[in-house]
Design a protein around this nucleic acid. Structure first.
Lengths: 235, 235
DNA sequence: GTCTATATTCGGATAGAC
DNA sequence: GTCTATCCGAATATAGAC
């Protein structure tokens, strides 16, 4: 379509090849963005220990929930001592805040990319497809934020809700644009946006279902887009 | 359609008029089913205090989560003392177990009703419509169970997952039947069932969104069914 | 049938040694 | 840069009074 794009990211494989927020790069980002709160100064140490902390958190919380996961649990699971953990976080809730920050960063980057595309229909499809792909890669992070938002301090809780609200508004505006270009009534565009978000979330919230069905991220995205177009055309 | 049905429950109003699990009836059911665990013997006292306990729980937990809600919080919110509360529950987790029991009871009743209908298409539509209606009435209960399943003891946790699994299997079988009668390939029926459940859940999990949009339960059901038929017809 | 007072356990956080 | 030892507050649960 747009030749200005250097290469297509329309399928999961090529999206993943370019996606920056994977593996240790995530923890380098986290370290950079929290340098002042982390007493350990060397990235070398920090990156490996941050990875331990978040891997353990994502192993424990889906089973028992963040409030029930004690820092002693975390200490056991990471191999770090209580004191060791506290040199990376100044309080337990900071773990949740860091997750929120990363999810916010990623979501905003994806949305900005999609909005840059000139054709509304392409922008809409790209936004949805890339969200499905990114949440596939960062399943733990998005799922954690969804279930543990209530563990965040008030202001960060608001920010977390705003991540979803911004995405929803953007989708709804894009749907309006697509519809206007084809003279379709726009009345229920917000509800379609809500539904699209529900479908994006369902995949990362219930990986056991979706991996059991064996449907690939590409096929899932395809199916969601087909349903969307059906809904857009029948207001 | 089926004249054996004494009256239609195809719209929310008439469904609600017949639905037994509302208001104090819920707590009478709860008392009956937990008589042996409750030290208070008079239904008169029990019903009013159970209502206090669950109303307070549904006010507190959506904001802070069940593990963070202390029995002292609950004591303050209900006006009952710690000891008073413990004459209705023998442990904190019993609150969550009782919610699970009621949700299980309601879900199974609805599913049994729908399956009794002879026409697969009507059964499928009824199952979905009535689930949307029932979860509208029992929003607090269903939402609590979704978010707080992890607070249940292991065996009850399994039972909670099975509620959803049974519904999913039933929907997928009904979709297969509808498709077979029209010579449509059945390959992705399980995924459609998963999607339908996601849409049913989205409405009770995010009431603020759906009530803001102002879409009625009837309209929502209509729209979900339209999407479903679109998906059924394009495998 | 309900309340007050209390036993007991456990979790978050920190100070100072290594 | 990390660990050990410890403090303190809070939560569940219960015993016995009213």
């Amino acid at each position: 379509m747009d030749q200005a794009q250097s290469h297509s990211t329309a399928d999961f494989k090529s999206f993943q090849a370019d996606f920056p927020h994977q593996g240790r790069a995530i923890y380098e980002t986290l370290f950079e963005r929290n340098k002042d709160r982390i007493t350990t100064n060397k990235a070398k140490f920090a990156v490996v220990n941050l990875e331990r902390i978040f891997s353990a958190t994502f192993e424990l919380t889906p089973r028992i929930g963040f409030p029930v996961m004690s820092l002693r649990d975390l200490s056991r699971a990471t191999g770090l001592s209580m004191g060791g953990i506290y040199s990376y976080i100044e309080s337990k809730e900071r773990i949740a805040i860091m997750v929120k920050d990363l999810v916010k960063l990623v979501t905003e980057e994806l949305l900005a990319r999609a909005k840059d595309l000139s054709d509304p229909r392409t922008a809409l499809e790209t936004a949805i497809r890339e969200h499905i792909f990114a949440t596939e890669i960062l399943q733990d992070w998005f799922s954690f934020l969804y279930f543990e938002t209530r563990s965040l301090p008030h202001e960060h809780q608001e920010e977390s809700k705003n991540i979803e609200l911004k995405l929803e508004t953007a989708l709804h505006e894009l749907i309006d644009q697509v519809r206007q270009s084809r003279d379709i009534e726009c009345g229920n565009s917000p509800i379609i946006a809500t539904t699209l978000i529900a479908l994006i979330q369902d995949r990362y919230l219930k990986p056991w279902k979706h991996s059991k069905s064996g449907e690939s991220a590409d096929d899932y995205a395809q199916r969601v887009l087909a349903l969307m177009h059906c809904a857009i055309e029948h207001p």
